[in-house]
């Protein structure tokens, strides 16, 4: 895999590891950005890993664009050889699928959708050749997902499903983006799921909502007092379908600031995962449930 570098104006270098999404591309992006951070290159102001690419922002008054480019290119060999093992976290995100709020929103924007006569979940089940909504929810929530990028808006995670490519759920984005998406909507576009951290525009299909805040600019939520954004690239997520009663109980806990998210330490090896996906995911579930 050879990285394609390109200048983004006079203040950015953009690096495309691969045109296609894959965990290999993500790991190369993550190890390159970690190496750039560790190198402490003068004039580098932002280091942003993404799904299969990354971006470096720099101050051209402090480092010549060409010099920085050479420095990044010199790191490429080491990054692609590095062992793709990650000390990370696994967390459980409760999801109320087929909730009333995303349903109300998706009905308002039906004319922007591929299939105005079906809900987003019905459409997603159909285009993935699954029997129905329940089968789709099972496929969506049974295996863990990898946070391969944080961005778009503050704290929004992009999630990549940890299954063989042929089993990955793929759904087109809306034909035209909506102007509204409820806060904490679980969305999906292309091969990525996401959690909309704030209310706003969006083009991903809407499947449900989580009661669990993931971004808190006021830093009052007990688990967001140190970092206002919950997610980091490399985190692993397991969706947990919940009932309306469980959702309401979680909302009450959030409002009283006593909601405790399930977050456990975990390690992840890409080599192990590629050898045995089911076994690796089972071990992650053990880590999550403390067994």
């Amino acid at each position: 895999m050879s990285i394609r570098f390109s200048f983004g104006g006079d203040e950015h270098i953009f690096a495309e590891v691969s045109e296609d999404m894959s965990l290999e591309a993500f790991f190369t992006s993550l190890s390159m950005t970690n190496a750039v951070r560790a190198a402490g290159i003068k004039g580098v102001t932002e280091i942003c890993p993404a799904n299969a690419s990354f971006q470096i922002k720099f101050d051209p008054d402090r480092i010549k664009p060409g010099d920085l480019l050479k420095e990044l290119q010199s790191m490429e060999g080491a990054a692609s050889k590095s062992d793709a093992t990650l000390k990370t976290r696994i967390m459980e995100i409760p999801v109320l699928y087929q909730d009333p709020w995303t349903h109300e929103t998706l009905m308002r924007f039906r004319e922007r959708h591929q299939n105005p006569n079906a809900t987003d979940l019905e459409y997603a089940a159909e285009v993935n050749g699954l029997g129905g909504v329940d089968d789709f929810i099972k496929a969506h929530s049974s295996q863990p997902w990898f946070v391969s990028m944080v961005g778009f808006v503050a704290g929004l995670p992009f999630l990549y499903q940890m299954v063989e490519r042929k089993r990955q759920l793929q759904v087109p984005k809306y034909l035209r983006p909506r102007t509204d998406t409820p806060k904490l909507t679980i969305g999906h576009g292309g091969c990525f799921s996401c959690i909309y951290s704030v209310r706003g525009a969006g083009g991903y299909q809407m499947f449900g909502v989580t009661p669990m805040p993931i971004y808190d600019p006021s830093q009052k939520v007990n688990y967001l007092q140190d970092e206002m954004c919950l997610f980091k690239p490399g985190d692993i997520v397991k969706w947990k379908p919940v009932t309306r009663d469980e959702y309401d109980a979680a909302i009450e806990a959030v409002e009283e600031n006593r909601f405790e998210p399930v977050i456990r330490a975990a390690s992840f090896s890409l080599t192990e995962f590629n050898k045995d996906m089911a076994g690796t995911n089972a071990k992650l579930m053990e880590a999550l449930h403390g067994r």
Partner: peptide, 17 residues
């Protein structure tokens, strides 16, 4: 490419400078 979406203007989601 895999994961990019079907429109020719689509890419695998990346950073926007």
């Amino acid at each position: 490419p895999f994961g990019a979406g079907s429109n020719p203007s689509n890419i695998v989601d990346a950073c926007y400078p």
